[in-house]
Design a protein around this nucleic acid. Structure first.
Lengths: 164, 164
DNA sequence: AATGAAATCGACCAGCA
DNA sequence: TGCTGGTCGATTTCATT
């Protein structure tokens, strides 16, 4: 299951995380391998689920999704209900991410809506879930860019631990 | 600047958000358009920045990034320092997302690290930033899947508002 | 694991509604 | 402007090392 990656794989992944639009030729030039070799490695990375998907990133603003919302959710009886509540949270319109947390707050929900009304509906939908005890929402004023994705934000040491 | 999308664009985006691996042929079959027409629309969506990038999604676990961390950051003098602090937060190793928030907490930082030691380094890096007053970190036990991306999590009404 | 040649698919062009 | 069909170039695949 666990695949071992070498430096070349990391370099490929770093570039594909940024953009898949760039052709194989750029990669083969930059990494000094044939186009087929790059393709061979990319195929392996996909089949071993290191690369889960190649997908389009859509600008939320193009869909009028201008409000980004963090909501903390606490359930009343943490024992049995938590899993069900989590599942129901993922199904609410506008909800993009649900995280089950350690500590006092049980879930953090990240969602995008287009206006105030939709925000109210969203919060109502959360509160109406059986077992939800308390919610607390906060707005994002601005999303800051970190440059790349996973690998671009890793230190040398972190990368070394994977390659080893 | 603002592009108006029709139902066909939405259907294309919904599919490309899921996976770009699927052929043009699949899309043209499913939507009843020629391959060229699909290509024409996808090109437009890219050029108008509705599709920002086509990129690979990498499994964090393949990179040993098993710890996912939410950190709330409060700055001491919110007036002038906030922008600089935000910028510096994005540059810290392991940090993937930085959000500037409304309310009492100034920033929410989402990061991934491989182990306890890296977590300590990360939090130290945050605290050492000039102007940072207080931090509070929480761990994610589990990330729940919401199915798709943006469009898949939108209601009919939300989509209608975009298509208009 | 990597290569080069052969089959397949996507990008682009001119024209058309 | 949005679409079609066809051509060319790029990518994927496969046999071979």
């Amino acid at each position: 299951m666990d695949v071992d990656l070498d430096e070349t794989d990391i370099e490929i992944l770093k570039r594909l995380e940024k953009s898949d639009d760039k052709n194989l030729e750029e990669l083969s030039d930059e990494l000094g391998l044939s186009k087929s070799a790059i393709h061979y490695r990319v195929t392996n990375l996909k089949q071993s689920d290191v690369i889960t998907t190649i997908s389009a990133d859509v600008d939320p603003h193009a869909l009028d999704l201008s409000m980004l919302l963090f909501t903390e959710v606490t359930v009343s009886h943490e024992s049995g209900y938590a899993e069900d509540v989590g599942e129901l949270l993922t199904e609410i319109d506008g909800v993009n991410h649900v995280y089950y947390m350690m500590g006092d707050v049980d879930f953090i929900v990240i969602s995008r809506v287009q206006n105030h009304d939709q925000m109210h509906v969203l919060i109502d939908d959360i509160v109406e879930i059986d077992g939800v005890n308390e919610t607390s929402s906060r707005f994002v004023i601005q999303e800051l860019e970190t440059g790349g994705q996973l690998i671009d934000n890793m230190s040398e040491e972190m990368v070394d631990q994977v390659v080893e």
